[in-house]
């Protein structure tokens, strides 16, 4: 018996109903969105179910959509079923003013560092995380560099001519 995307979708809608939204398939991989309060419940269900068995958290990251009012930050979970070799992608949206999302560290140990990284770059506040502090950037950093409102370039630079770097000059795009 192989685990198909249609079957996973069926099981999710049976269990959570309308809460599972934006279900789509990209490049053969199932995508869906759940409300942020339900993220742990859905993952627990996917983990525990004898047929689904999504017991590995491949990746956890975030995306910033500055134009989506009230749901600017998307936290993305990539889950994997080792036995059937099936992947899926689960998204949770939260507003940038109140970026609180429940931590997945109780369910997956690997979420620990990935949530720290997501906090470091996007400022997602994972409620219940045992050690939520910066992991890659300097501790003194006072902003979240991957949010779109912050330019990529180092703002402390004093000796770089923007024009020579193709920015701000007349060549610009």
């Amino acid at each position: 018996m192989s685990l198909t995307n249609d079957y996973i979708k069926q099981r999710l809608t049976d269990k959570f109903g309308e809460a599972v939204s934006q279900v789509e398939e990209t490049f053969g991989m199932l995508n869906f969105t759940v409300p942020k309060d339900l993220n742990l419940k859905v993952m627990q269900f996917l983990y525990d179910d004898e047929e689904l068995q999504f017991r590995f958290l491949t990746d956890l990251t975030a995306v910033h959509y500055p134009d989506r009012k009230g749901e600017e930050l998307a936290v993305v979970y990539h889950l994997y079923n080792f036995a059937q070799r099936v992947r899926l992608r689960m998204k949770v949206y939260t507003s940038v003013e109140d970026p609180r999302v429940f931590t997945a560290t109780r369910l997956f140990e690997s979420a620990n560092w990935m949530e720290r990284e997501t906090y470091d770059f996007f400022g997602v506040n994972f409620v219940g995380h045992p050690n939520l502090k910066r992991i890659l950037n300097v501790d003194e950093m006072d902003y979240f560099p991957m949010r779109k409102e912050f330019p990529l370039e180092d703002q402390s630079r004093i000796d770089k001519d923007d024009e020579m770097f193709g920015r701000g000059g007349h060549i610009g795009i």
């Binding site: 890659l136 950037n137 950093m141 560099p145 912050f150 990529l152 370039e153 180092d154 703002q155 402390s156 630079r157 004093i158 000796d159 770089k160 770097f165």
Partner: peptide, 14 residues
């Protein structure tokens, strides 16, 4: 000397 091409938030500019 100057950060080089890495004009980014994480690299020391020289």
């Amino acid at each position: 000397s100057s950060g080089g091409v890495f004009d980014t938030y994480s690299v020391l500019q020289g």
